[in-house]
Each structure stands twice: as structure tokens, then as C-alpha cells.
């Protein structure tokens, strides 16, 4: 009698060495590599703000109100005499923490729902997709405004959890749609059929065999929505529904006193605006480059 052993059918995965991948990426996508350097600089500035920033971002100095950019204050000072450059550096932390967590949360939930929707099909697919249709019916900023107004604030470790949720929710349906499309093609692959035939549970098939094969669109969406999340956080803070003063945040730096003094002190809006633009541009460019690099269709 021959013992029948079943070995798990595995999904095809790329096994290139990391160093080779990085070199390859730099060669193929130089602009993407440059944007990654910008993102990395922002990340380092955010993590090591205490050491990198020349001044305490919360310190009020009424003797230095509305000082123009100088060697002492590279980006000038605001209406409280606070150093704008230091606030931008600390603002990177706020922007990255909120955008990273909300983009991760939104993209991951969206990806799971997208794969589940494609895998199960039938009424589950219908219900999930109709719900996504409802969410997609609202413009991103409107949906975020509704969520943040409904949830109020819940601060944990200095971060407003509900603000993260408000930024994450509009991301979910958009990622869900893209990942579902990718998962629909994977669902009919022989290795998925084989996994089903081997009697694996639905969750094992989804997470072990389908999810790794939608990593490319997931990563692209994740980075692209980092940019969206930065903009959304800045917009909510600008509207007074996000981060509150005196926490340094780029969107917040554009509102409040900046609106009163931008004529006399244009640097109050110029530099935070530049920081937002640069970050959004870098994340968008990196997302595009990642898509071009990972999607085989763009290599043809």
C-alpha cells in the first residue's frame, strides 16, 4: 500500500536577492529611487526630530514674532515666534505616523475584503461590493469629515486614533476594488484549485496562497495612498478637525494665525506648503515607480 502524502501547493513567488532588487530598481526607476531618498529623509527627520531640529517646536518667543527666513531661523518664525523649520521637521513625524498607520490600515482592510470578495463570489461579493459602492459615492474629504465629526477625538500616545480611522476609511473601498480585480484572476489559477482540492480552509487559501500574489497591487496602493493620507490629514487639520495646536502638523501650520499673517509673513504658509507638496510628490512618484517596476505588463 502506498501512502499518499499531500504537500501544500505553493504559489509562485519571486525569489530575487534584496541587493539585486534595489540595484535593479535604481537602474530602472531613477526618479522612483530619488523619491525614495526624499521619503527616507523625511522618515529619518521624523524619527530623530529631537536631534535634527534646531529649536523646540513648541517654544514661544514673543521677541521673535514673524521673523523672515534667516541663518538663525531657516524658514522664519510664526506668529508665536516659533521656529517654522523645526515645526516642519516635527510635522513630518505627525504626517508620517498618521499617513503610514492610516494607509496601512485602510489598504490592509481593503485588500482582505477585496480578496475575500473575489474568492467567495456570489452574495458575499455582491454585499461587499455594494457596500464599497456606498463608500465610493462620497468624495474622500467628505467621507473623512463625516467620520472625524462623528467619532470626535480619542488620543492614544499623543496620536488621535479616530483621525487615523477617518483617514483610513476612504482608502478601504479604493484598495478593495483594485485588489479584488487582481484576486479574480488568481482565484481561477490551478494552484488555488489544488489548494481547495487538498481541503485547505478558506482562510488558509486566502492568506497563504492568494494574498502573497496580490502584494504588488497592494504595495502600489499602499504607497499611493500614503500621499493621499498626508493630504487628507493636512486638509482635516487645516479645517480644524485634525491635529490640534500646538502639535506641529503641516496642515495646521497653514491655518490659524497663518491665515491672518500670510501677507506680512508669506513664509508661514510657503514652507509648510512646500513640505506637503514635496511629501505628496515623493510618495506619488515612488508609488508610480513601484507599479512600473513590479507590474510585468509595464516591462513588455
Amino acid at each position: 500500500m502506498t501512502a499518499i502524502t499531500s504537500s501544500a501547493p505553493t504559489a509562485p513567488t519571486s525569489a530575487a536577492r534584496p541587493r539585486g532588487v534595489i540595484r535593479d530598481f535604481i537602474n530602472q526607476q531613477p526618479l522612483g529611487a530619488l523619491s525614495f531618498v526624499v521619503i527616507l529623509s523625511m522618515t529619518i527627520a521624523g524619527i530623530f526630530s529631537e536631534w535634527v531640529s534646531p529649536y523646540d517646536p513648541l517654544h514661544i518667543d514673543f521677541a521673535a514674532i514673524l521673523q523672515p527666513p534667516s541663518w538663525e531661523h531657516w524658514a522664519g518664525t510664526d506668529a508665536y515666534g516659533r521656529d517654522i523649520f523645526s515645526r516642519i521637521i516635527y510635522g513630518a513625524r505627525t504626517a508620517l505616523v498618521i499617513s503610514l498607520t492610516s494607509s496601512f490600515l485602510g489598504s490592509t482592510i481593503g485588500a482582505i475584503l477585496g480578496i475575500a470578495s473575489a474568492y467567495f463570489g456570489g452574495w458575499i461579493d455582491d454585499w461587499i461590493q455594494r457596500f464599497m459602492d456606498i463608500l465610493l459615492a462620497f468624495p474622500i474629504i467628505v467621507l473623512a469629515l463625516v467620520v472625524v465629526a462623528a467619532l470626535k477625538t480619542a488620543v492614544l500616545f499623543g496620536i488621535d486614533i479616530n483621525l487615523i480611522v477617518a483617514v483610513a476609511i476612504p482608502i478601504i473601498p479604493r484598495v478593495c476594488r483594485v485588489v479584488r480585480a487582481a484576486a479574480l484572476t488568481i482565484r481561477v489559477m490551478p494552484y488555488v484549485d489544488a489548494a481547495r482540492a487538498a481541503g485547505y480552509s478558506d482562510s488558509r487559501i486566502i492568506f497563504r496562497h492568494m494574498a502573497p500574489n496580490v502584494v504588488a497591487p497592494y504595495l502600489i496602493m499602499f504607497t499611493a495612498f500614503m500621499a493621499q493620507a498626508i493630504l487628507l490629514e493636512a486638509s482635516l487639520s487645516f479645517l480644524g478637525l485634525g491635529v490640534t495646536e500646538p502639535t506641529p502638523a503641516w496642515g495646521l501650520m497653514l491655518s490659524g494665525n497663518a491665515a491672518d499673517f500670510y501677507r506680512e509673513a508669506p513664509w508661514m504658509i510657503l514652507f509648510p506648503g512646500l513640505a506637503i507638496s514635496l511629501a505628496v510628490f515623493a510618495f506619488n512618484l515612488f508609488g508610480d515607480s513601484l507599479r512600473d517596476y513590479l507590474d510585468p505588463r509595464f516591462k513588455v
Binding site: 514661544i60 488620543v155 495646536e245 500646538p246
Partner: peptide
């Protein structure tokens, strides 16, 4: 904005100078 926010920002800064941390909620 006037003048509650400036007052809040001012107090947070004043208290930081004696090692007190105030989380400003509006």
C-alpha cells in the same frame, strides 16, 4: 480661533517651562 487657541498655546508653553505636560484639547 480668537482668542481661545492662542491662550491654549500660550498656557501649554508656560507649563512646559516647569516640566508640566498639558495635552491641549479643543
Amino acid at each position: 480661533a480668537q482668542p481661545y487657541t492662542p491662550a491654549g498655546i500660550f498656557l501649554v508653553d508656560q507649563w512646559r517651562q516647569i516640566g508640566v505636560t498639558a495635552d491641549h484639547k479643543q
